[in-house]
Amino acid sequence: MNEFDGDHRKYQALMDYVAFKELHEFVSNSAAIAAHTDSYAVSSLGPIAASKVVELKVAKAGELRGALMHFACQTIVSLCTTFEVAARDFLQAVFAVKPDGMFEFLGPEDARGHVPLKDVLQASSHDELVGALAKRAAGSASKGKYGAVFARATQLAGGTVDKAIVSRLNSLQTERNKLVHERHRPAIGLEEVLNAHATVDAAIDALCEIAVKAGMPGRYTCVHSDAAWVVQDVVGLVPGDAP
């Protein structure tokens, strides 16, 4: 089934943020850092001044703060990946229920909508063929600027594009590309990571709202408590019972 699990993608984005927040709380706690640096034993072949010991502990604390900033950068990259996967999954779910939307994303530029005969012959059913094509088309439709991908997904599902989210996603992608491709290392902290999470979270929420209105199968309790789609209810079954 090509359902969109919005709840799971939203949870993944939250866990990206929570992981950084937990480390941030530790590194920002002076008592915790002091206890950590004090746990190190300084050894030397000769006498060592007390000031040198203090200097080494201060350096260790600085290394932890540097590691926190590195993790902040990685968290933003991870949040971006979460959006990329969510957008691709959403598009796959859209194409599964609206196959006509795949036309522009299948085949070469001079033969849009082309489906190789081999794919048709290998499929055991029409549903299997549509599912495979939906996955392929989603991979193509989810490429490009985040804002454009979000807008495309929204329009294909019949929703209204939130231009504010488009702008926020594009800004986030610009920052992500600097971190990945230019090794840009700005002073990123909790506020920046929180803002990145808020952007991805808002985008996933918007996709879930659109999916609910479009009647797409999936899990959207994050925006609508009655929008859970049950794949199979096995409550009460015991070994030997018929499904």
Rank of each mutant, 00 (worst) to 15 (best):
I165S: 08
A206P: 02
V166Y: 06
S225A: 03
R185F: 15
T81R: 06
A61Q: 03
P47A: 14
A242C: 09
S51E: 13
P116Y: 02
G218I: 10
S39G: 07
G62M: 11
Y40N: 02
Q92Y: 00
C80R: 11
H126P: 09
L156M: 11
G236L: 05
T154P: 04
M15H: 07
V238I: 05
L207A: 04
G158F: 10
R185L: 12
R219Q: 10
V238D: 03
S124R: 13
I76P: 12
S43Y: 10
V42Q: 05
R152K: 12
H8C: 07
H70M: 13
V42I: 15
I188E: 07
L68D: 02
T221F: 00
V54W: 02
T81Y: 03
S125H: 11
A137E: 08
A67P: 01
I188H: 10
G144H: 00
N177P: 10
P217R: 07
K118F: 02
G101L: 01
G218V: 11
H181M: 09
D110P: 03
S44T: 06
K60S: 09
F95H: 02
L169Y: 12
D110E: 04
I204H: 11
V18S: 11
S78N: 12
K135S: 12
R183C: 12
R88W: 04
V223A: 05
N29G: 07
A111V: 01
H8W: 09
K145L: 14
Q12G: 09
A138Y: 00
F83D: 01
M216H: 10
F90K: 04
D127W: 11
N195F: 09
Q74G: 15
A187Q: 13
P116W: 00
A41D: 13
D201T: 01
G236Q: 06
A187E: 13
L237K: 14
D100F: 04
E175R: 14
D127I: 13
V223G: 00
I204S: 10
A32T: 05
A148K: 15
K178S: 15
S124Q: 14
V193N: 05
I210D: 01
G158N: 11
G189F: 11
L56M: 12
K10G: 01
A111S: 06
V161K: 05
G6F: 10
A141K: 07
V120E: 02
M102G: 02
A96M: 09
K21G: 00
K163M: 11
A67Q: 13
K98E: 01
A151M: 08
E192L: 08
D110H: 01
L129D: 04
A72T: 05
T154K: 11
S124D: 12
F4C: 05
G131H: 08
K163V: 13
A32K: 13
H36R: 06
L45G: 13
K21T: 07
F90N: 05
E63A: 14
I204P: 06
V77H: 00
Q155N: 12
H114A: 15
L194Y: 07
R152I: 05
D100G: 08
K118N: 00
A151R: 07
T81A: 12
A198W: 03
G6L: 02
Q155A: 15
R152N: 14
D89N: 12
